[in-house]
Write a protein that binds this DNA or RNA. Sequence first.
DNA 1: TGGACCTTACCACGATCGTGTGAAGGTCGA
DNA 2: TCGACCTTCACACGATCGTGGTAAGGTCCA
Lengths: 121, 121
Amino acid sequence: MVRSTALTGLTIHEAAALTGWSPRMLRYLDAARLVEPPRTAAGYRVFGPGELQRLRTLRELLARFGCSLSDMAFAKRLRQEAALRQTVERWLEAEPRRPEGVSPADWLAWEQEKHQRLIAA
Amino acid sequence: MVRSTALTGLTIHEAAALTGWSPRMLRYLDAARLVEPPRTAAGYRVFGPGELQRLRTLRELLARFGCSLSDMAFAKRLRQEAALRQTVERWLEAEPRRPEGVSPADWLAWEQEKHQRLIAA
DNA sequence: TGGACCTTACCACGATCGTGTGAAGGTCGA
DNA sequence: TCGACCTTCACACGATCGTGGTAAGGTCCA
């Protein structure tokens, strides 16, 4: 037991007991690149207070907002991949809020103007 | 046929043919609140050029970045719900990058300092 | 050395996503 | 009025997600 001192950190079972996740899920979160604890030379995962805090807040975040792990993985992609972020941002931004009573003939002009606004932004 | 003029927009089958989505999926995207065309008084969906453009770019976005519709739905939540956005942002931002060779006794101080940085941000 | 831990790699299983199909009924135009 | 469209609802089905279990093998410590 108490190899914690030798590892200068907690083992996966200890971290599981302290955070409410199962050891299985801690490995899953590692594979999903959401919480990646460092490893010992032998490959053992080492959980420090940073990981424990991260695991607890992740737990609360999911419960509070009802979102999934894949949602969090996508949020991470959004933060890391600038091209993805910009493309998604522009797509969401372009909600087609047409003014009332616009005739079909005006569509093209409206769309072109919107396109200009997007380019300018 | 050609009730397009009466609707001043395209029907769901016409929009499907022009965008590569199936009518079924256009209804699904509507229910998922990703592309919500306006309705006629009788409840028919009316697709204008804005919706067509949105549908085409959505298609390309998914293919180019390999993301899912639920990913896009979550991106929309991130943009609309400030509390969710902030919480996710802070969680992602807090990647535990400890300096090398820090002793267990220093963990607490490190974590507290990080917490201060987060609050200040 | 032996036992308790760790690792990865599988198999399984319910829940959800993405998608098609069909039924039952309303709307529109010739 | 009739046929071709539209609507919602429901059932189905493969793929993925989230999760548990187990097996085969390596590591650590008393």
